[in-house]
Every structure is written in structure tokens, then in C-alpha cells.
Design a protein around this nucleic acid. Structure first.
Lengths: 176, 176
DNA sequence: ACAGGATATATCGAGTTCGAGGTATCTTCC
DNA sequence: GGAAGATACCTCGAACTCGATATATCCTGT
């Protein structure tokens, strides 16, 4: 997920690590300020893999910045990840949102639609947070307000997303 | 998060590892079937820490089951985690949902309300997925449908949750 | 003049997680 | 009778993440 976010942000603009870090923190939900010890080694790995290019820009504001940009290979890698995301990116809320943030980079509406269809398929499968003997439990099966809240929030989210998905698919698939 | 889920499920009933694994997979969103290699070592660590008790139940259905239950210390540990969750459990969607699933075990309505208030405080802070020069960007700042969808879904979710939080707080805090 | 905080990058060790592989039993279907 | 698949547990190495620690500059307030 982190790699996708790095690639996605750099597709638009050159950034330095510190800036990248703030943007990723905001995107993944203000929520999960990724550690220095995670980001900088990741950037080195990605540079070593030929996805990133690094350019030293001495003393702009404070310490010298390492301006990062995508190589041709890095751009291609981003597009591949967007076109054929791992199943986890379709099923996991956080990863799916990260993918959505950058799906516009995938230039072909048909390919964008195909990704949305995978999410649609996932969301329309029967699901529940709790099961008893193979039977899915519903909000009415609980008397505590917290699990009811869980269901209330999840249901509202799913309904909103399904509505958006269907509308957007109509716009992306002109005649079908 | 995993530890909280293990403690939460075992607070209600004895379970064996395999069953626990299915329940956790369903709760964390069908989405993230945790690996054997994660769960079993975790259970061993928790047993070594005195949180779990293990009892061998030979050949019920297939291989012998290790029925797990909470020790007194394990129950206390769950209640502590629910009463004073780390900040990440308040801000990260997945963790917060896990916490919500078991908040009923915390018997005191005042303590439950205090936890909900922390979430309320977090959700009412200004937030955005994207920023430009310190200014939060809004849905209208984007012309691609995917980022607009991101905002649409997030807004709907937050509104639903805020409504639920406020209603539930009224019920939990009788006169205040 | 100097402290504190933001900017900016980096490394290291400890702890976690994943994925692949292994073992064994029971049930179902052909 | 045998294969396949679900049940049930386990270990190991590779990879990753976090938190602590370090360094250095610039800006702001006192």
C-alpha cells in the first residue's frame, strides 16, 4: 500500500521524502503517520529497484532535500498496479481508498471501469462481521448499541459506495 | 489489533484457534484472512504472558483442538484496553471497528461514553485526504470521479457515524 | 543570545507478519 | 476404495514496520 501511495503521488509531481510523508499520512487517514524508519528505507529500496530517481537539492529550507521523481519504469509499475490490483486492494478498505486516489492516472476508461467492477462484485457478495454456525448475524441479533452502530455505519457506507460505483460505471462505459 | 480481537472473542466463549481465525477474518472485513503463521505464534505469546489458558480436547471433529479461554488476567487486560485504548484505536478505522465490536464488555456506561467521546473529538477535527500548501482540498477541487467518490463515501460514513455517536451518547449519559 | 520547534534525512535493533511448507484426521463424493 | 477438501495445528526464514536515536539547518519568540 505504501509503495502504491509513493508511486501515485510522484506520478504528478517531484517531491522530497518529508513532503511525501505528510501527504501519505493525510491520505491514509490522518491516522497513520508512517514512521521515518519505514519511509526512508522504502525509498531506498524503490530507488535500487529502478522505480525512483533521486536528485539532491542543497539547502532549500533546512537540511538538503532529496527530490524524488518516477523513472519510466516507475510510471509503468504504477499503471500495472492500478490496472491489475491484488485482491487485497479490492477488499481492504484502506488499500482500496489508496487505489481510488490514483485511479485517474490509468488513462483508459474501460480499464478504470474494470477495476470498479471488481469492487462492485466484492461489495455485492453476502457479508457479515459475525457468524454463528455458518449463519450471518444481523444488526437485530445484537442488543448492545456498539455492534448495532457497527452495522449501521457499515451499511450506510456500503450503500453510498454502491450508488457511486453504479453512477460512475454508467459514465465510464458509454454504450454498454 | 489482533490481540484485542482474540481477547474480545474469548471473553464470551471458549474457542479453538481455527474457529478464532475464521471469526477474526469475518470481523476485520472478510478481507484480511490472517495467516496461520501469524495467529498460532500470537496465541503462544499470549499464553506465555498469562492471558490465555489452553486445554487439549482430543479428536472432536478432526485433529485435536486446543480450547482457549481467558485467564482472570486476560479478562482484566481486555477491559484495560477497552477503557484506555491507544490513540491508533481511535483514529484508525479498522482498529476502531474492532474496538466497537467488544466495547459492550466494558460494563460501565460512563466509561463506554468516554471512549465514544474520544472518537467524536477525533471525527469533528478538520481533516482532508489531500492538502496543498497547508490548505485542505475539497471534493470540488478535483475533476476526476475517483477522488470525488473518495470524498463522497468518506463524508457519508462520517455523517452516519457522528449521528450514531451522538444518539448513543445521549443514551449512555442519562442526565449530563 | 538562546531555546524550542519545524524541516529534513538516516540507521539500528526489536518485534511482527506473511507465505511456504509440513503433519494429521474426518467427511463427502464418485 | 481413493481423491479432494475441510478441519486443525505447527515452524521457519524473509521481509517489513516501528520506535529510538542521531545529525543538521532554519525560523520564531523571548
Amino acid at each position: 500500500m505504501l509503495e502504491l501511495a509513493v508511486l501515485g503521488f510522484l506520478y504528478d509531481a517531484q517531491l522530497h521524502g518529508y513532503d511525501l510523508r505528510r501527504r501519505i499520512a493525510a491520505l491514509t487517514g490522518h491516522v497513520r503517520p508512517i514512521a521515518d524508519g519505514t519511509l526512508y528505507p522504502l525509498l531506498k529500496r524503490m530507488e535500487a529497484a529502478g522505480l525512483l530517481h533521486r536528485e539532491l537539492q542543497p539547502g532549500q529550507v533546512a537540511a538538503p532535500r532529496h527530490m524524488l521523481s518516477l523513472t519510466a519504469e516507475g510510471k509503468q509499475d504504477l499503471l500495472n498496479r492500478l490496472r491489475e490490483p491484488d485482491e487485497l486492494f479490492v477488499t481492504d478498505e484502506n488499500r482500496w481508498f489508496t487505489l481510488l486516489a490514483f485511479l485517474r492516472h490509468l488513462d483508459d476508461p474501460a480499464q478504470q471501469a474494470a477495476v470498479l467492477r471488481r469492487r462492485l462484485r466484492f461489495l455485492t457478495q453476502p457479508a457479515s462481521f459475525f457468524w454463528d454456525e455458518g449463519r450471518p448475524l444481523r444488526a437485530a441479533d445484537f442488543d448492545d448499541p456498539f455492534r448495532q452502530g457497527l452495522f449501521t455505519i457499515a451499511t450506510a457506507t456500503t450503500r453510498t459506495e454502491l450508488e457511486w460505483l453504479r453512477q460512475t460505471l454508467v459514465a465510464l462505459e458509454p454504450q454498454a
